[in-house]
Design a protein around this nucleic acid. Structure first.
Lengths: 411, 411
DNA sequence: CCCTCTTTCTACAACCCCTTTCCTAACCCC
DNA sequence: GGGGTTAGGAAAGGGGTTGTAGAAAGAGGG
């Protein structure tokens, strides 16, 4: 709400680092052109990041007559970021270098009984310890740990106010975690993690308004409006999954009828399949992943049942996405999460057609619908991105003496 | 997208003037407390506005021992703003003083045939001339004219890209108008006009995220997110009226089925009534306004049919608004426009209940649903507000010599 | 009536941010 | 090695906000 000139600096820092990560190595000139900032500003920001060890100078561009451009790149080993994805049945932790490559990964399965906060915290602490050990980085290099937990969180206090799967109410998760983990911690939910991942590294990069549609067991939408996340007043914006798609439709676990999630979430898709063909061999009653994968293979093999199920699902999804397009008029809609990844292009095609049938012409013409280009787990990546943002925004203009960069500047 | 320190200044200027208009007269101290700005900043901003003649010093507060606080108030006669509401069947123009009181009004009816751009422009020019003459203000005092036209507009170029009622495509409305009107012109659509009116003078004032639901013949939502309007990439965000509420439901003139508008727009409400009681005396088949008014009177008289129709309508409306609450998690939802004004409290009550049934508990708890507190035509007011914003953002630090304010400062 | 106390408000300096401008550095080519 | 050309650093400048010292303006007591 309250904007200060420092926010401008932070936003520019984000912008520059984003660009460098996307295109590394690159020159200051290119950065200035890409970000629209002046050369001087880019130079100071780059200098700052060089001093912090987040960038390195990696040589010079060939020149055709003038002084060659110095090239900078992310100093991958200049720090590490950890992303934690707490889900209903597992905890996944990934450790990234500064170029956001995965250096180590640890998965911990959680049995249905193990949902008490201390147990979950234990799993997280163990996995975090494991990735740090695996990657062999010194603790000092870990810039922060981003934690994604389902449900509603209060980022300021670090409290998980409500988690739908387990019966969590106002769990002070950050406090509990900080007893085991000494790195800076950042808490948010998977919806926003995916959105921020797209914003930095995915299809929403450089776009003003984007909607990241999350298709998993649950369904939601991350709203990236005006270049930043829209959180809403109590940080619970994006609950698109519980938007009414069919009045008096299928019963949802949230208590309502006809929620989007009941038609296009993984269990909803399974129900679509069962309604169409109750004894289909594609159906693995107890296994969402297997069913979705079977569907994907079925579509590839032109199995008529699979094709029809995907088409039906896309029809629902298209109607829901059309609502988002009409309401928010975004530049891009990104389909993310494992169901979208599994069903891929065939789903995308059908969704595009369905959206085109439902959305108004003008907003539709301005928005593009794409699959997420992020190859790894977007939640871990997004969580790590929160840590990166945190590290970047806590930089405080430390009396700008530029370190001994000059000593080895020419190789 | 690109933020500069000047934007901060402009935003602060808005904030301060908003506060003064809301509470006039007031002191610099109160302003600083209310806006969170430092005293120094408030003082310079107030000084600026005093120099421009938009404020006046109006005396002093009684003090209990110290120097008394100087009081400032809007200088109502320091300028005039004009708001133009172009609708399907009429053009309404209002002239406001700087305290946003209506000084003059002109209505022009347009017959169905008269929808060519030049004809509409003629009506607008005539009405603008009329209000200026009525109010007897000198032309120099008119700070700007805001124009609201239905459909999609491009504010930068001043082109009405598409108006659904008439067959307008890419009409250079601003250029046409500027041939008749020499004041600064600002173009946008009624949805955003209502939203900005609520943001400055209504229920959204001081709120971070608000949704202004417009219930008229057409239906839409103005999105005030993060303290400013969300426009979307092609300035067409807010088309909530064509969001799907009932899959395969009523046919909408947009070509789809089951749009929100077909259930809660005035024609939709008439249909709700007709379906319930085809020969109801409440129904005036050719007159929306009369029917809605009859319904309102019916509810007041506890007519069971009227009550039922309002309840049914509220049920649809509640489901639609619940979607907005879940998706955007706003601080407040404002019901605006003539249908909301006519049905008033009874509708509000039913809507609140219906939303509570559909929305998720957490976002619901954080949002308030209210009727618009704006007593006059919100579209004209909002259009005038665009002109006010325009005037405020074009202020440019003119070598700060403070004028002869001192000469009469103490009465 | 004058002095002191209190509070407001202005002017000014300090600071942060971005940009423009100037100038040196670094390379190619001749 | 010198001229042409481009990169990048340093300084100056403009826009903003804020803290602070001191003038301004009143209340109240002696």
């Amino acid at each position: 709400m309250k904007r200060t000139s420092r926010d401008i600096r932070t936003a520019n820092r984000y912008e520059v680092l984003r660009q460098i990560i996307a295109e590394s190595p690159t020159s200051r000139q290119e950065l200035a052109a890409a970000t629209g900032l002046s050369l001087a500003t880019v130079a100071t920001l780059v200098g700052e990041l060089l001093d912090l060890g987040m960038l390195t100078e990696v040589g010079f561009e060939d020149s055709a007559g003038g002084r060659p451009r110095g090239l900078v790149a992310v100093n991958a080993s200049g720090g590490a970021l950890i992303g934690v994805d707490i889900a209903e049945t597992y905890v996944r932790v990934e450790l990234f270098d500064l170029a956001l490559n995965v250096l180590a990964r640890a998965d911990e399965d959680m049995r249905p009984g193990e949902s008490r906060p201390v147990q979950v915290v234990g799993h997280v602490a163990a996995a975090v310890g494991s990735v740090v050990a695996q990657a062999g980085v010194e603790g000092a290099r870990v810039l922060g740990v981003g934690v994604s937990v389902p449900g509603q969180v209060d980022r300021a206090t670090g409290i998980a106010e409500y988690a739908p799967n387990w019966d969590w109410h106002d769990v002070p998760l950050l406090d509990l975690l900080s007893e085991h983990i000494s790195y800076p911690l950042y808490l948010d939910n998977p919806l926003r993690a995916c959105a921020v991942a797209e914003l930095w590294f995915g299809a929403a990069r450089g776009r003003g308004d984007a909607v990241v549609v999350n298709l998993g067991t649950g369904v939601g939408a991350g709203l990236a409006l005006g270049g930043g996340l829209h959180r809403g007043v109590s940080n619970s914006a994006g609950e698109w999954g519980h938007t009414t798609l069919v009045l008096d439709g299928r019963l949802c676990h949230c208590g309502n009828h006809g929620c989007v999630e009941t038609y296009v979430g993984a269990p909803g898709i399974m129900l679509n399949l069962r309604e169409l063909s109750p004894r289909s061999p594609l159906l693995h009653p107890e296994d969402q992943t297997a069913t979705i994968d079977a569907l994907a293979r079925g579509v590839a093999a032109q199995d008529p049942v699979a094709v029809k199920v995907v088409r039906d699902t896309a029809r629902y999804l298209g109607a829901g996405i059309a609502d988002l397009v009409n309401l928010l008029n975004p530049e891009v809609v990104v389909l993310s999460s494992w169901v979208a990844a599994a069903l891929g292009e065939p789903l995308l095609e059908e969704v595009r057609e369905a959206v085109a049938r439902h959305a108004l012409r003008r907003p539709l013409a301005a928005t593009e619908i794409v699959l997420s280009p992020i190859p790894t787990d977007p939640v871990c990546l997004g969580a790590a991105t929160f840590a990166l943002e945190g590290a970047l925004s806590s930089i405080t203009q430390k009396a700008g003496q530029r370190n001994n960069r000059r000593t080895w500047s020419k190789q």
